[in-house]
Design a binder for these strands. Structure first.
Lengths: 334, 334
DNA sequence: CATTAGCACTCGCCGAGTGAGAGTGCTAAT
DNA sequence: ATTAGCACTCTCACTCGGCGAGTGCTAATG
């Protein structure tokens, strides 16, 4: 625990630095917010805070900047979460009403809105539940020897796959689809496997495709929607740096799931990962704020923001939380 | 037309500069490729080429670099297209065989392969034909008052939309879907509109959703797959520049369709847009190489590469062409 | 004992100055 | 038409010094 004075000092340093991106000096602190003490005293306290590991100097004779530990302390003990302005809430809510129908767009929209609100990179995954279940299969004839297999899974997930056949006709496809739906509709992967294999060769073929596909689904996260590369890259810490490229790689690729530690996140929980706490090398000076959204036990997804460690936690965290709630409400109505 | 000597000189300058990104000086040219002339002569010719607008100097006492006009002349009259090494072809072909089944992934893969092959940003759009046609509709019950409307269009395009009903039961949905399929299956938007409206309220509702959706489809390009932000941003021209951000914006957003002039591109044609020929301000020193792929009169999509004007046209163009052919073959087999 | 004034010291950040190198254009000779 | 020679230009990299912000230490103070 820190003494009262050190706490307020650390608080000041974090907020000042987050605001300006300039190392904070003792005189500046005293001048701007008048604590009743002199710069010298502040320096003493700063030296102490540095020994304890909460702040560092980029070089001798520069001001202090918060260390990862300092940010962590700030987030956990000092920060006063800024309430989301009700107008902001209204704006966000409004944008969602615009696109009510096309569910696919919700998540993209969520990512865009979030990225814009917090001026950083945002990620939203579509919700899914622990177990994939088959809802319905449809076989659409393409050419003489192939058909499109349209698979509807729980949570309105849709997958498609081309299947090649020896020969077939359109009517038979309907029969096959009906049989498969009857036997396998509503089942999870494990349950499907316990059903004895059909004698009909076509059925078996379709089922094989289905199980393969559902295996993949069970392993994967939801679809990932991102936005805000521009926002995060206009932050001064990335303006002139080769690390940008590594970061872009992370943001762009599917490596994303590695960067964002979704797994260890319970229902309705929030989590903040700061700087070197990140698994990924290139994210040493980034932080991630993430929240799970969704219904208890039902399908759930993730909302996350990625930015420099020097991030406005006090407003980012509530915003992420708000969006998670919003998405939770939305999908509850499906 | 340029004299023979000036042509070869321009050719040298372009290829040298493309390779090294360093302005090309007279002495260097003479030393490296021995034309039978002195630097002074080369300088004279260069001065002439500059007057004619094919090359420029970044500043007095620097070497010359090609202007947009110079690149254009190179592409149209000088360039010897490098044949794609047959191993490279094999590698690419091989990667496609890996992912034979999941058609959705083809285009993403194509973009990735292309971006990697040419070390620039790549875009691939999924194929679609001039007119959207309805193939089949499926209604999947979600809750008591809503259903998922799964729409299969031509070229195996799938769209989904949630529809809310007053009330309904699962069996009725099947009946509705069958009726709609019977009456509207295989029709284009225009044709659908000429069919008199159904008396069944549910049918009409579904049809309304369908037409709305197909309108959007007709207006939009295919799905867009991109890859290679990293590649293009590691090019030296973007390494230290604020224009990166604008460029990223273009690459990321849907503005993309504005950046890539797909419209004025006939079947099986290729097109190269150089520097200031681009509509977009931020793309002043970028070039785009694009090709249409697909079957005659049938569905078609676009393959494109975006990079700095200083791009290896001689290898990029054949690579783009090759990928277009490959994708054309692939989708011909659906 | 905590606080503070005073002071010497340390760095990073310009801005000016400099020399080297690469490249040019011009002129006069071939 | 070509080319050797030369003066000139401009960038780049480097150095040097002053400025300013900030620090840590010491000694004086309440």
């Amino acid at each position: 625990m820190l003494t009262e004075r050190r706490s307020t000092l650390l608080n000041l340093i974090v907020e000042e630095y987050v605001d300006t991106a300039v190392p904070v000096g003792s005189q500046y602190v005293v001048r701007k917010h008048d604590l009743g003490v002199s710069p010298a005293t502040v320096r003493l306290e700063m030296a102490r805070l540095e020994e304890l590991g909460y702040i560092t100097q980029p070089h001798t004779s520069a001001g202090r900047i918060p260390s990862d530990k300092g940010y962590r302390y700030y987030v956990e003990s000092l920060m006063a979460e800024e309430k989301l302005a009700s107008e902001a809430q209204e704006t966000i809510r409004h944008q969602f009403h615009q696109a009510e129908r096309a569910m696919e767009q919700w998540f993209q929209l969520a990512a865009a809105v979030l990225a814009h609100s917090v001026s950083n990179f945002a990620v939203v995954t579509s919700p899914r539940s622990k177990q994939t279940r088959l809802r319905q299969v449809q076989l659409v004839p393409l050419q003489d020897d192939s058909a499109l297999c349209v698979v509807v899974l729980n949570e309105a997930r849709i997958r498609q796959q081309v299947i090649g056949f020896r020969e077939m006709d359109a009517d038979e496809l309907i029969v096959v689809a009906n049989r498969v739906n009857e036997r396998y509709g509503g089942l999870s992967l494990a349950e499907m496997r316990s059903v004895p294999e059909s004698q009909h060769a076509l059925d078996a073929l379709v089922v094989r495709v289905l199980t393969e596909l559902m295996e993949q689904e069970d392993a994967a996260l939801g679809d990932v929607f991102r936005d805000g590369v521009r926002e995060v890259l206009s932050q001064p810490e990335f303006a002139r740096s080769e690390r940008i490229l590594d970061l872009i790689d992370i943001l762009e690729q599917r490596t994303l799931s590695a960067a964002i530690p979704v797994r260890q996140l319970g229902e309705h929980e929030m989590s903040v990962v700061i700087g070197a706490e990140n698994a990924h090398e290139a994210m040493r000076d980034c932080s991630v704020v993430l929240a799970r959204y969704g219904t208890e036990g039902g399908p759930s997804g993730v909302v996350a923001v990625l930015g420099p460690t020097r991030m406005r936690y006090a407003s980012t965290i509530p915003t992420v939380r708000y969006l998670a709630e919003l998405l939770g409400d939305l999908i509850a109505h499906i």
